[in-house]
Each structure stands twice: as C-alpha cells, then as structure tokens.
Amino acid sequence: MTREQRALRVSATATFGLAVFGIGFGLLTRSGAILFDGTYSLLDTFSALLMLLVVRLISSAGSGSKEGKLVERFTLGFWHLEPIVVGVSGTLLIGSASYALFSAVDALLKGGRDLEFGLAILYASLTLCVALSMTFFMRRANRRLNSAILAIDVTGWMISSALTAALLIAFVAGWLTEGTGLAWIRPYIDPGILALICLMVLPLPVPAVRQALAEILLITPADLKQEVDQKARALAKQEGFLSHRAYVARVGRGTQIEIYFIVPKGLPPRPLEEWDAIRDRLGEALGGEGPHRWLTIAFTTDQDWAE
C-alpha cells in the first residue's frame, strides 16, 4: 500500500468514526445540526473509500497483482473513475444539504426545537479536535506526495473543522442564554445554525462537480490545447509537415493527448527510428511524462485520417 493509500485509509477511518458519533449524538440530542454533521461525515466516508479504491486501481494497473489483471478489461486505464467519484459525491452532498435546509426552515416556521446544549457542546468540542488533528495530519502527508486527491481531502477536513466550529459557537451561545431575557431564542438556535451551515455548504461542491462533469464529457482544456498546438506547430514547421491536428483531455489525474501530423506526399522514406526520434522530441517538449500521461503521435498523408 502506497503512502497516498495509507493516508486515505486513515482519513476514511476517522471520517467514519465521526459519522457514527455524529449520527448517534444527533439522535440522542434531537439536534438536526448534529445529525446533518454526522450525515456529512458519512458522505465523506463514502467518497474517501471510493477514492481509495480508485487510487489503488490506478497504482496497481501496471503491476502483477489481481487488480492489475483488470487492465485486460480497462485497456484505457482507470482515470475516468476519478471524476465519476467526485461528481457523485458532490451531487450527494448537494442533495443532502438541500434536504437539511428545507428541514431547518420547516422547524423554524414551527417554533424551533429544544436541545440539550451541554451534550451538544461536548459533541462539537470532541469533533472539532478530531477534525483539526486530521487537517494537520493530511496536510503534512500531502507535503511529500503533492497528490490532488489528498488536497481535496485536506479541503474537506478544513470545511468540516469550520462547520464544527460554527456549531460549537452556536451551542455555547445558546447555553449562555439560559435564565436570561434571551432564553426565548434557544429553540431557534439548532434549526437556525443548521440552515446557516447548509447555505454555506451548498455552493462548496459546485466547482468540483462542474469540473468532474467537464472531465467526464471530455471537454477540451483550453490551456492544454494551446500548449500542445504551440509545440506541435513548431515541430511541424521544423520538419516541413503541412499541418497537424491535436485532441486533448484531462480525466482525473490522467492527461490524454493525440496528435496527427499531415506530411507531404512523396517524401523520401525514413527509418522508423527517425520517426520515433521525432515523437521523443515532441514528448520531451510537452513534458509531464509519467504513468498518467497517454500520448499518441501519428503521421499520415491523408488528412481524413486526422479528422
């Protein structure tokens, strides 16, 4: 198991623990905010486990392990699974937050609900300690690995920490109002903070879902297309080729590039080694060589083959 997989495993275990803790406390205290916090952690667990599976498949695709044998069925790799997982997880979170928001508004309209603030403060304090600890742990782990998936997980823990801190502040404020002239506000604190948290959470997954959808639909990244066209155009000019066609996409951590050069008819034949040398030059110019780059370079005199 790689360091990336071990870090994700620790994160998934911690998230699942918080999910069980949150859902249990939410039912015990009848707090919609705590229940939503636990549900949020449960969705995070689902996402972390799927990401762990995807990372394991990608890293083992070229090995002799059992997962490596799946290459026979997935000859184009497993990169496409990453945006699917991100998109599904983000959509589930948006749906959960939307439902919780409607529930909170309904509770506010019906006069709120009573809450045992002592237990709620205990829950928020313990959860905040775990969330902050995992934020520092995952950030430290990602300093060496520089993994996009771990970066997403770090962001998730930071969001969880912020939401739990908001819960703690609200519960402490509600506890302090006991026996004062502001005691009437106590039933509205739980649904009120739940509605506020939902409004904060709802926009957060939208960029990730949008990016995942773009990768699933193989929408061409403008910056990558511009870079590939620039390097391919320069090479075509050096070699006397007529033109080129480039097709690019980013899918998860994978980059897919296909380049077709249109060469003049009747050129003197060249050894295959010379054509391979041209491919190597362009590959080095593009950079990013590694297991997550899929680069295809072809030469043809028939433009129809490149369209």
Rank of each mutant, 00 (worst) to 15 (best):
E274Y: 07
L145C: 13
L213W: 14
R3T: 05
L115A: 13
Y188K: 09
L28C: 10
L52K: 04
P205S: 02
I23C: 11
M200N: 04
L267C: 05
P203A: 07
V251L: 06
R56K: 06
D190P: 11
V54H: 05
I262Y: 12
G174V: 00
D229I: 05
Q303S: 15
G240W: 03
H80S: 14
V251T: 05
G266L: 04
L115P: 10
L163S: 14
I278L: 13
H244D: 09
G62V: 06
L42D: 02
I193D: 10
G32H: 03
M138A: 09
S160R: 05
I159F: 03
E116R: 11
M134D: 11
R140T: 13
W305S: 15
S59M: 01
Y188M: 05
E67G: 08
T75W: 13
L194T: 04
L92P: 11
L128M: 12
I121F: 12
G111H: 08
P291K: 05
I193Q: 05
M200I: 05
L70H: 04
T180V: 08
A212I: 03
A212K: 01
L267W: 01
G266C: 10
L224Q: 01
G290L: 00
S125I: 03
A151N: 09
L199Q: 09
A100S: 04
R233K: 12
Q5S: 11
F46M: 06
R140L: 10
A12K: 01
G77Y: 01
I94E: 02
G287T: 02
R233G: 14
I149D: 12
G111K: 11
V10W: 09
A100M: 11
D37H: 06
L204R: 08
V55G: 13
Y40W: 12
A165N: 12
I257L: 09
A107H: 09
L57G: 11
L217A: 11
T91H: 07
L92H: 07
